[in-house]
Amino acid sequence: MSAIEILGLEKTYPVGFWRKRPKRALKPLSLTIEEGEIFGFLGPNGAGKTTTLKMLMGLVFPSGGTARILGRPIGDPAMQAQIGFLPEQPYFYDHLTPRELLTYYGQLSGLTTKEAERKVPEMLDRVGLRDAANVQLRKFSKGMLQRVGIAQSILHNPKVVFLDEPMSGLDPMGRHEVRDLIEQLKHEGKTIFFSTHILSDAEALCDRVAILHLGELRKVGAVADLTSAIGGRIELVWRGATIPQAFSALGAECHATGDTVRALVPESSQEAAMEALRREGLRLISLTPLRTSLEDYFVSQVKPSEATAGGKP
């Protein structure tokens, strides 16, 4: 059984005050996420990531299509007891302490008071909040709130965890810890579905990713498969301030620093570039193949002009 099955899920909102116009936040989306996978949901602002997550959580009603999580439909309480959710930039009841908040959420998820009393301190330890267990949340920094958010999403030992921008607002150490935590969850056999802007995190963690743009699914696949789909580049470094004329025709990006030049050329033009350097009598210092990153692939799918268009739905 797949952990998450999304079939033609779509959302259209009416916008405008007087004459309502339909605005499509998500075009029909179909995805299948297997159990035990870490699945990255990528896309620029306004791509429809949060709308999709809200529909899966039953917070927003789809205009069309269906979805099943652990074989059960959206909104099924038996399914909801087995999932965890961290919203983007979470905000919690700030009159509570983390201990009280987690106990409350644990009870709402079906834990008995005894179970909650046993699990809450363990979870506070796990996210590094033991010392702040009895401090009211109104005194917490953004990073600490994010830790509380992660704790509440996994407290009741869910099978599937949905994380909306889990690294948002965290410092480099915090990000590293969250990455470790996500990997631990995978080792525990959980399915993780997370949306992010931070592509290096997605690249490091995800088994597969989906790229969403302007409410439309652009690509789905394993990171390695996607990045190998576009041609790579090589980096050439040589001694001397001369840049052979042939390099401009090869589409090379050249940067001269002192008496060395660094050029990035398409992998397919490697031989022609080497020949041009030989003709000019320039001494090659290094030749390094550059791996195509997920970021390169993402940018190739989402044009920069489009990436900045549109806001959050």
């Binding site: 905000y91 709402l108 079906g110």
Partner: peptide, 14 residues
Amino acid sequence: EKRTLYTVLSRPVR
């Protein structure tokens, strides 16, 4: 407004 509802209604709470 404060989005505290999201973490409540995503649980088995009708």
